[in-house]
Design a protein around this nucleic acid. Structure first.
Lengths: 247, 247
DNA sequence: CAGTGGTCTAGACCACGGT
DNA sequence: CCGTGGTCTAGACCACTGT
């Protein structure tokens, strides 16, 4: 589709963003500076208002796909990010973007009493029940990461009876209507514990990347506390940064 | 200032965002759900149009300071990020946000021929000149990180004669008009080299976090290639993630 | 000078949440 | 039902770029 469907329930600005995204992805990454049609041209082409056009371009700019130059025009960015941690995506999807066949092995799954750092992160009392799910992440059938997820039991009663060899993200949304919306994440490095070096199949002196994440639902409530450790020889983080600005 | 100055050259939407930001920062982090005035109320209060109000709120939402609920209202997010890597800021500013007194020690500064990974990152030929600046980063006078910056000589001729105990960011913008605009960053972990363990004053088995970053100017040209290593016992990354969406 | 993106206005209709 | 945020329009003036 290269034109906006005015009958579609999809907002114009999302349709236009999709059209432009496809075009950007198809464009060569050569040294040439490739410009997009001007805002007024897009108004003419798609018969929509300039405000709507700008809403589309704003989104693409935020994604780092284009950049604008005042008085000159809008250009396709030459340096585009393949996978980026700026977006909240599931670990499974993250691994797919990295080009791996994702695998998952449940190591343990039990209901426990929340203790200090977990209760704090989830903003619940220390004696409240949480599900602790420990899973090994495989990439192309090799161990890549070890992941503990802690979920408040009251948010997802009966979770313990479900199959969790699939995306937790999916289960939470489909079964419990909990939509992971935003997150705060910490990243650090340390040496592995014995448990970690055993499951990740690494020597004791190979550093691991550890990650802590609190995920919030669309209602701004803590829904998941995640602790992951990753083999530093197989896993790197990539993200893109932009200037704090508006525009 | 709690009102919009209509004489000011600062755009209304930035003024309003600043007003609301101050108010959000002053609000308690209690369990209560605190709402902001509705969009129409903000229109009345500040005598500006709704589109302008929404432009302000959009920016605050992107920063993770507020969230909206259709049909209900706009609320102050309970989980706000103190310092976040999502924004491109200078290392000096980053350290200030972490509550440290930033310090800097120039270890070496020379003009060299670009070699393979550097030339690739900066998109220049292998025999082109680049400045290599190695600096030790101090936090509260203790070593925290070791940083190599590579800059294309043609972008900043004469840089070698300048004082670089201050922010490189500042120098590039003030002296050469090069504005760092966006970046791609990689994060990983490994053990330190001898050189690193000596300058960072750490044992050989304490992992370091290493970071590679290519910074692009507002014209989307590579302007800086940065390699940093950080003491994992003193340095952690924090960032916030949001759902890939528009809005 | 004409064309570009940046800012802003004053309307409009809609889907949604709560009463 | 009314108020909320979500989407959209048709204008307007400005500063900036290149010719």
């Amino acid at each position: 589709m290269t034109r906006i469907d005015k009958q579609s329930p999809i907002p114009y600005y999302i349709q236009l963003a999709n059209i432009l995204r496809r075009r950007i992805n198809a464009s060569p990454i050569s040294g040439e500076q490739i410009s997009l049609p001007s805002e007024n041209e897009l108004v003419q082409i798609h018969q929509i208002s300039r405000a709507t056009v700008r809403q589309s371009l704003k989104e693409l700019e935020r994604e780092g796909l284009i950049y604008k130059a005042k008085g000159k025009g809008t250009y396709i960015a030459k340096h585009r990010v393949r996978y980026s941690l700026n977006q909240l995506i599931s670990t499974t999807e993250d691994m797919i973007r990295r080009g791996w066949i994702p695998g998952l092995k449940v190591i343990s799954f039990k209901e426990i009493d929340a203790y200090s750092p977990i209760a704090d992160a989830l903003e619940i009392d220390e004696n409240e029940k949480v599900y602790e799910l420990c899973r090994l992440r495989l990439g192309n059938e090799e161990p890549v990461g070890l992941q503990w997820a802690y979920l408040p039991a009251k948010l997802c009663p009966g979770l313990i009876d479900l199959d969790l060899t699939a995306s937790l993200n999916r289960v939470m949304e489909d079964k419990y209507g909990v939509r992971f919306w935003s997150a705060r994440e910490f990243l650090g490095a340390r040496l592995p514990t014995k448990f970690e070096s055993k499951h990740l199949e690494i020597p004791a002196n190979l550093p691991i990347i550890y990650m802590e994440r609190v995920t919030f639902s669309s209602e701004d409530l803590p829904a998941e506390f995640l602790r992951s450790t990753w083999r530093s020889d197989r896993y790197e983080y990539e993200f893109s940064l932009t200037r704090p600005s508006s525009g």
